[in-house]
Amino acid sequence: MIPRGFEYFAPRALNEAVSLLQQLGPDAKILSGGQSLIPMMKLRLASPPYIVDINRIPDLNYVSEANGSLRIGALVRESDLEISPLVGSGYRLLADTTKVIADPLVRNQATVCGNLAHGDPANDHPATMLALEATIVAISPRGEREISIRDFFTGLFSTALQPDEILKEIRVPTPPPRSGGAYLKMERKVGDYATAGVAVQITLDEAGVCQRAGVGLTNVSFIPLKAAKVEDFLKGKPLDAAAIKQASEIAAAESQPMDDIRGSADYKRDLVRVLTARALKQAIDRAKGGA
């Protein structure tokens, strides 16, 4: 349970980290929270020869609102989001999500950006960020670029990030009035990956008609799944019981789960149906100003 040897770098500035990555090439791995990377290294499922620890870079630990979006810096820990009043009041879907990731000790160390950069469809933030239509800011020797979350996940454990790019920031559009979101996850135990999870973010108009809907699904596909059919279905509809029921059935059909130790594919599909309905109800309540 001891990782293979590696060379360790702890740059003190972002540009230093960027040039290190360029210099070390594609075998280098970035260490932020390390709560996925280090266990993998201990089990020797990953043995990077170079580790670039970005934890000493100043000014990457911020959660703030600017220019119509919430900005989450690369070193923001899950527990920072958990206690952030800004997130708690304005971004309920995000607050829901961060509370159910791993366990409190892991959340004290794990970063939000790392949760995305890992590209694991079993992680929770991917579905949430898909529902929220987030934007990823990456930095490299070529400068900064923005990546839409829709284009970010490219395969199992792979993302649009280039080997010399660092995920610097996540931008979440500030929801307009009459918006609400919720994340529901079924896990067998604290700290386990989701058997299935559903992230929902909606915006209603004054009449209660759905103007915008974002739905992401956790751990029911190889790539974090944006439930586009559900989103299309919801848009322009009054969200009554019948619409919720139908949307949850579309979500179940859209999911692509597999049999594993957490349950059969059928069970997980059914779980997606149940969780989608509940998450939608909760998101609607919240959009209408309820809890």
């Binding site: 067998r188 135990k189 058997t195 957490r262 349950g263 059969s264 069970y267 059914d270």
Partner: peptide, 8 residues
């Protein structure tokens, strides 16, 4: 209930 669930 090895998967935590009766129906699964």
């Amino acid at each position: 209930v090895p998967n935590g669930s009766v129906s699964s």
